[in-house]
Amino acid sequence: MPTNPDPDAALMLRVKRGDEAAFAALVEKYKQPVMNLVFRTLRDATEAEDLAQNVFLQVHKSAYRYEVTARFSTWLFTIARNLCLNEIRRRTRHPADSLEGTQQENEEQPARQFEDVKTALPQEALLQRELEQKIEQALAELPETQRTAILLCRRDDLSYEDIAKIIGCSLSATKSLIHRGRETLKLKLKPYLRSGEWKNGP
């Protein structure tokens, strides 16, 4: 990208030369975005954080072969997604700690990811929180590729081409995945979208 150099790619090149401060800067910048993606795939905060750490460890280990062929974030999210898929495969092989089990556990504790302030919240905020949980659930029920594409789509720094690279699909297939995922979300959340309750949020 000679016309619009990626500052993160420049940092990564410094990491390649052994600059640990550059690595720390990249971790600081991307820790939460990586966590967002990993958490919505694994649906377990502790495991997601462990895996997010592994993502950055993998980035450091692979630094010696890093080449600026795309945006740094594209490379990073590709690593994150691959590790997520490995974890899902591992869970499939060991059903004792499968995603389903985690989901059930989560359903029993729906407020797991939010601070317990329900009682103190006004009606409007409670409604908003309920909607957020509904969409979290609807997102979790989407196929992995559709969910990942939709989540990456929210990031300003990733173009559709970047998302396609991360997902490993063509551009048109990626747009189709997003479209189908959104259609499913619209069906599941139709009552809320129609009632316009989302407009009442904070």
């Binding site: 966590m35 905060a45 939010f114 969409i135 939709i150 929210r154 949020g201």
Partner: peptide, 10 residues
């Protein structure tokens, strides 16, 4: 709008 307001992960 709903996706935009989706909270960050923990």
């Amino acid at each position: 709008q709903l996706l935009e307001k989706l909270p960050e992960a923990p």
